[in-house]
Amino acid sequence: MAQRITTLVLLIEILFLLNYVSQIAKTAAANDGDVIHVTGKVMCQDCTLNYDQWINGSEPIKGAVVSITCMDERERVRYYGSDKTDERGQFDLIVDKVLYGGKNLKPNLCNVRLVSPADQSCGIPTDFGNGQTGEKLVQPFMVFKDLVKFVVGPFYYTTPMCDTPKYENNY
């Protein structure tokens, strides 16, 4: 019985420690570093494949465009930028935290999403990983000296055959 209590106390202490470290990372991301790095991947999923290939066989898309839009508290666009994916389907958005006029950008008010595919053969955006609606920058992946890095996605496109039809009046 005493061993279970000790284990329970240890688990509670670990949870508090993880929460504390998470809060430190969020505070550091808001205050440290001159730039924000946002990385991720864009992949193609083909629903015509069997389930195992569909889940595990996604291919990277070269040349897909991903954007970042950062707002202010009054919901005005303060920054917009984009990047194309490389041959591995990876993108790297780099945003200066200090904008023209000395205003500081707040990462939690930024949204990263899919913009356009490189090839229409796999060009239907999906919302797996929030690629179509956009993913907010909530928790930094890494905070080190002058570097604040966020990782989003992966985002997915699919083939036109996999697109769900749009019905009028929900029929």
Rank of each mutant, 00 (worst) to 15 (best):
M1A: 11
M1F: 12
A2M: 12
A2Y: 12
R4L: 15
I5W: 09
L8W: 06
L11F: 08
L11R: 04
I12V: 11
I14G: 01
F16R: 06
L18I: 10
Y20V: 03
S22C: 06
Q23P: 03
Q23F: 11
I24S: 08
I24N: 07
T27G: 11
A28Q: 14
A30K: 13
N31T: 15
G33L: 02
D34A: 11
V35W: 08
I36M: 07
H37F: 15
T39P: 00
G40H: 05
K41M: 02
M43N: 00
M43D: 00
M43G: 00
Q45L: 09
C47M: 06
L49K: 15
N50V: 04
Q53N: 14
Q53P: 01
Q53Y: 05
W54A: 09
I55K: 09
G57M: 04
E59V: 13
I61N: 00
S67M: 05
S67Q: 12
T69L: 14
D72M: 08
E73K: 14
R74D: 11
E75N: 15
E75M: 15
R76Y: 10
R78S: 12
R78G: 11
Y80C: 06
G81L: 05
G81I: 00
K84G: 02
D86F: 09
Q90L: 08
D92L: 14
D92P: 02
I94F: 03
V95G: 06
K97T: 00
K97I: 00
L99E: 03
Y100F: 10
K103G: 03
K103V: 10
L105A: 06
L105M: 10
P107T: 10
P107I: 08
N108I: 04
L109P: 01
C110W: 10
V112L: 08
V115R: 09
V115M: 09
S116F: 12
C122I: 00
G123K: 03
F128I: 15
N130P: 01
G131T: 02
Q132M: 08
Q132N: 08
T133W: 04
G134T: 11
M142S: 06
F144G: 05
V148H: 01
F150V: 07
V151P: 03
V151E: 13
V152F: 05
G153T: 02
P154F: 01
T158E: 08
T158P: 03
T159E: 00
T159S: 11
M161S: 13
T164L: 14
K166W: 07
E168K: 09
E168R: 09
N170L: 07
